Simulated assay, not measured.
Amino acid sequence: MRPLPGPTWPVRTAVRLTGAALTRLQRRPVAVEARLVHALQLTWAVPPGPARALLPAGLGLDTHRGTDGREWALLAATVAEVEALRPRGTPRSAGRPRHVTVDYRLFATLAVRRGRTVRGMLALAGQSDDPLAVLGANLTSRGGRRRVDARVERTPRRLRISVGSGDGSADLEVVADLDGTARPGTDALPERSVFAGPRTARRFGPLPRTFLPDPAGVVVVEAAPDLPPPAAVAVAVPRATFLEHGPLAGVEHRLSAAFLSVDVDQTWGPGRLHLPTGPDPLETYIGM
């Protein structure tokens, strides 16, 4: 007599529970904090067509009509020197040592209730020169952060940041002029900026809300909103190869603004899952 097979439901249940736990983990369930030694956001204007193709379901494109009358989408690369990155509430000594991160994001909108939308930045990709920061980010999100080499040089008059991706697909080199421009209330726009002036450009400066794609909807991560305003700075960007690869390869792009924050304590709350579908497009968050 052949033995009867053992029950398969424990295995199926274990697989289902493991999958649910991993899904929950990738929704940024823990609030974190860090000190931003420098955080420099570079904002490019690109045609809306290729940019719209990057949007997951539930998000719209946040566009701007430039001084030339054309409609533009806005893409940002934020390169930051970070220290003491840790879960919120833990001592600074438990945080990661100083390292560099680069985040590529697209300005987008999310419909939350009848006729109302909120603005934020869709996370496209990320980099870091800290292997443990890369591991932690990839465990707690679906952004696909990768390891890079980075170097930061600062003098009283200049900040230079160089990022090497190894294969050349996401190299970045930027030089920010700190001589009289890195102060609140001062403004500098690149020569070919699509913005008419500093006030309009600041609408596409750093935003506290980040959107993360999720199979069930969109995960929303919000930073502390009461941060000092960043300063607009003059920059030179001799190398930004992410604009030469991937879905934006070959598209027209215009560097339109650069904003710098210095010595800021930043807190990010836990992710909240937004379900954009249903009989009523009401704001629906599921706590992690």
Rank of each mutant, 00 (worst) to 15 (best):
A240M: 13
V30H: 13
H274M: 13
R114E: 06
S261T: 03
V218K: 02
L282H: 06
M1Y: 12
G269K: 02
P281M: 05
T277D: 09
R146Y: 05
H38L: 01
G126W: 07
A223Q: 13
R154N: 10
R114S: 03
R157Q: 13
L17F: 10
T23E: 15
P5A: 09
Y285L: 11
T18I: 04
A111P: 10
R151N: 14
Y104S: 12
E71K: 00
L106R: 07
R2I: 15
R202C: 09
V163D: 08
G205P: 00
E71D: 10
T277H: 04
T277P: 00
P276E: 05
P56Y: 10
L139N: 12
R27P: 00
A45W: 14
R157P: 00
Q127S: 14
G164N: 07
D265I: 01
A201H: 01
L248S: 04
P213Y: 01
D62L: 10
V251G: 09
L139M: 08
A133P: 03
A150K: 01
S93T: 09
P5K: 03
A216Y: 01
L55W: 09
T241L: 08
L25G: 03
M121S: 07
W268V: 14
G168P: 15
G144D: 11
S165N: 05
D263E: 11
R16K: 09
G66H: 13
V237Q: 14
D263P: 00
P48M: 12
R158T: 15
V134F: 05
T43Y: 11
R24Y: 05
L59K: 10
W44G: 01
F204P: 05
A73V: 00
P10D: 11
V152Q: 11
N138V: 04
G49Q: 15
R2Q: 15
A223H: 11
A57K: 14
V118N: 12
A234K: 09
H38M: 05
V233W: 04
P198F: 00
P213C: 03
D171R: 01
E222G: 02
V32P: 07
L106V: 00
R92D: 10
R209I: 03
F259N: 02
E173S: 13
V15I: 11
P50K: 06
T210G: 08
A21M: 04
P230V: 00
T210Q: 12
H64S: 11
S169I: 04
E153Y: 03
V37D: 14
R70N: 05
V112L: 06
G271W: 02
R209Q: 02
E71S: 08
G144F: 01
G269D: 13
G49D: 15
A94V: 06
R157T: 10
V82T: 13
T67G: 02
R183L: 12
L135P: 00
L212R: 02
P47T: 05
R28L: 07
P7N: 15
